[in-house]
């Protein structure tokens, strides 16, 4: 098993931390993992992205042109990464603030209304965990218990009282993810 994933959106949406939790979970489950952020000026200017690879075998390139799964959380990211999903792959997006729907016919497209849901839950900061919950529902790459462990490892101890809220957000994400094609 090998999954090549890109997560892209605005800085501040929790794109890098979502990738980190995923990578941690993979590591704890005994997989090979790489987490490669775009650390250049684009990170400072607004859009952030991270490539996460989880594999049972040694990982060669940490930098990729094409992905099994693309999670796009703003329009520039959709424009950049929709064409780079492998045929037969998966695109996950949040329609909030998007000016167009994804158009590919040869990939499976899922919608997660995470921004809306996070506001409704009065827990805007768990936005990325709603997305992650959705991802793990349709692509169970890692087990939930390892995700919770990974979360615990990547959250500083002073934030550990937020673990339950994050778990709830993931459950909500799993509920609301919706296939649109």
């Amino acid at each position: 098993m090998k999954k090549e994933i890109i997560i892209a959106g605005f800085g501040g949406q929790g794109v890098l931390s979502m990738g980190k939790i995923l990578a941690y979970a993979g590591l704890l489950q005994g997989k090979e993992v790489t987490w490669m952020p775009a650390y250049g000026p684009e990170q400072r200017g607004g859009t952030a992205n991270v490539t996460v690879i989880l594999s049972d075998d040694r990982i060669s390139s940490p930098i990729l042109q094409q992905f099994d799964i693309a999670i796009v959380l703003n329009q520039p990211s959709m424009d950049k990464f929709e064409p780079r999903v492998k045929p037969g792959g998966v695109l996950i997006y949040d329609p909030n603030g998007m000016t167009r729907e994804p158009a590919r016919k040869d990939i499976t497209i899922y919608k997660v209304t995470a921004t809306e849901t996070a506001i409704a839950m009065n827990a805007q900061k768990t936005f990325n965990m709603i997305i992650l919950g959705g991802l793990l529902k349709i692509a169970p790459i890692v087990d939930m218990e390892y995700v919770m462990l990974g979360l615990k490892k990547s959250l500083p101890e002073r934030h550990h009282h937020l673990l339950a809220a994050n778990e709830l957000a993931m459950q909500q994400g799993a509920k609301i993810i919706e296939k649109i094609n």
Partner: peptide, 10 residues
């Protein structure tokens, strides 16, 4: 290089 510096792996 910047890749090995910035990348996380186990």
């Amino acid at each position: 290089d910047g890749i090995v510096g910035q990348m996380m792996e186990k």
